[in-house]
């Protein structure tokens, strides 16, 4: 009982009017609005306490009927998305994530393999670098060619 009251406790009007409480005020207003719409459109539960039976005037729960709004083969993608969610197709989301990745795994591997070489260079001593450059055949030295008269 106490816990329930504590949940319902709200900030006072005067406090919410203060300048630094602007964000809290907006939040409180939004919550109030959501509560109001919920009470307007919600279908109250039929179970009354104390009675042993419920009168159910609809065939829907008796025969487990589905909602009669369906779409097939992409006629209405909006409805089909809801249908898929209801059917519990979970694979959909990871697939989308893969498509969203703008760097594929192969590209990533290639990039890192070259990165290893680049970083390795930084840790080489001067002598090692020189040794490396010597092992590579010397670049052709361009010499000045005297033009023929």
């Amino acid at each position: 009982m106490n816990r329930h009251d504590a949940e319902k406790k709200k900030l006072s009007k005067g406090l919410l009017e203060m300048k630094f409480m602007k964000r809290s005020k907006e939040k409180a207003e939004k919550e109030l609005e959501a509560e109001e719409t919920e009470s307007l459109f919600a279908i109250p539960s039929k179970m009354k306490q104390g009675t042993k039976y419920i009168i159910e005037p609809s065939y829907i729960p008796c025969e487990d009927l589905i909602v009669g709004r369906l779409s097939f083969n992409g006629m209405n993608p909006e409805i089909e998305l809801i249908m898929q969610k209801e059917a519990g197709i979970v694979q959909e989301e990871p697939e989308i994530k893969e498509e969203e990745a703008d760097v594929t795994e192969e590209e990533m591997a290639r990039h890192y393999s070259s990165l290893v070489n680049t970083t390795a260079k930084k840790f080489k001593t001067k002598r090692q670098v020189e040794a490396d450059s010597q092992s590579v055949p010397n670049k052709k030295k361009y010499t000045f060619l005297k033009p023929q008269d």
């Binding site: 609809s58 065939y59 025969e63 009927l65 589905i66 009669g68 779409s71 097939f72 083969n73």
Partner: peptide, 28 residues
Amino acid sequence: LVRKILKKDYPLFNVLGKDISYEISVGM
């Protein structure tokens, strides 16, 4: 008829949906 076609395991809509692209709205 509405109650019949809206039963969970009634095959009509799915069978038609395999070959025809359509959307439907069935009110109770």
